[in-house]
Amino acid sequence: MAKPILGINPLMVKELRGYMRGTRAYAVLTVYMGIISGITILLYTGVSLANPASGVSNSSQVGSALFYVMVGLQIVLVSFVAPAFTVGAISSERERHTFGLLKVTLLSPGQIVWGKLIPVLGYVLLLGLATTPLFSLAFILGGVEPAQFAVALCVILASAALFTTLGVFVSSRAHDTLSATVITYAIVVGIVVGLAVLTVLGLPALTELTGRAGASGAVPALTALFVALISLSPVGALVTSELNFANSGHLLTLTIGPFAASPTPIVLPAPFVILTVCYLTASAILIWLATRAVRDDV
C-alpha cells in the first residue's frame, strides 16, 4: 500500500532536527535579524532626519519606506539563502554514501524529496516570521495598506517555493553539491537579477514606445509580452503590482493601453498573480522531476 507523500516522515523529522540542532540555523537567523534591524534603524533615522517636521505624513513615509525595504530584503532572503539549504539535499546524500541506504528503506522517492523540501521551507518561513515585529512597525507608522502586504506576501511565498524546489531539483540531478550550487545560483541570479535589470532598462523604453503616435500594431503584443516577462521577476512583479495598485486601485488586474493601433485597453492579470501562478506551477513540476530523478537514480 502506497504511503501518503505529504505526511510527516522520518527523513523530514531528521532534517528539521538537523537544522535546529547545529549552530548554522541560529547563526543565519541572528545575522539576518541583525541586518534587517540595522537597516530599519538606519532608514528610520535617515528619513526622520531628512524630514524634521513630525506628523502623520512623515510617519507614513517612514512606514512605507520601511515596508519596501523589508520586502526587498525578504526577497533577497528567499532568493539567495533558501537555495543554500537545498542545493545539497540529494547530492550530499550521494557524497556521504547514504542515498542508497535511504532508497532501500520503505520511504518512497516522493517522501524523500518532500522530506528534504519541507524542513527548508519551514526554516525559511521561520526567518520570515522572525521579521514580523519589524513589519508591524511599518504598519504602526502607516503608509502601508493590507492589500500591499498581501501582494508582497504572495511574491515572497511563491519565490520561496520556487527557489527551494529549484535547489532540490538541481541537487537531484547534479553529480556533486558544488556543481549543484553553481547551477542553482546561476539560475537564481538570472531570474532575480537578470529580469530586474530588464525591468529597469525596458520599462522607460516601452513607456516611450507606447506613447509614440503612429506606433505599429505590434506594440500591444510587445507590451503584454514585456509585462509577462517582468512578472517572472520577484522584484519586477512586486514593483509593477504595487505601482498598478497605487495608480489604478485594481489589485488583481493590470490594464495596458489604449494604444494608437489598438484603442481597446488590454486587461492582464496583475504581475504578482502571474508570478504566483507561474512559480507555484514551476515548483510542482520541479518536485515531480526531482521525484523521478530520485526514483531513477542508479
Partner: peptide
C-alpha cells in the same frame, strides 16, 4: 525491501547523529 537488509560496499553515516539516533532513524524509515 521489507525482506532484504542491504549493506553496500561503502556504507555512509550521518556525522551529526549519535549511534542510537542513527539506528532509530532507519528503524523509523
Amino acid at each position: 525491501r521489507r525482506l532484504v537488509g542491504y549493506l553496500p560496499d561503502v556504507s555512509g553515516v550521518y556525522p551529526d547523529m549519535t549511534v542510537g539516533e542513527y539506528m532509530a532513524f532507519f528503524a523509523a524509515c
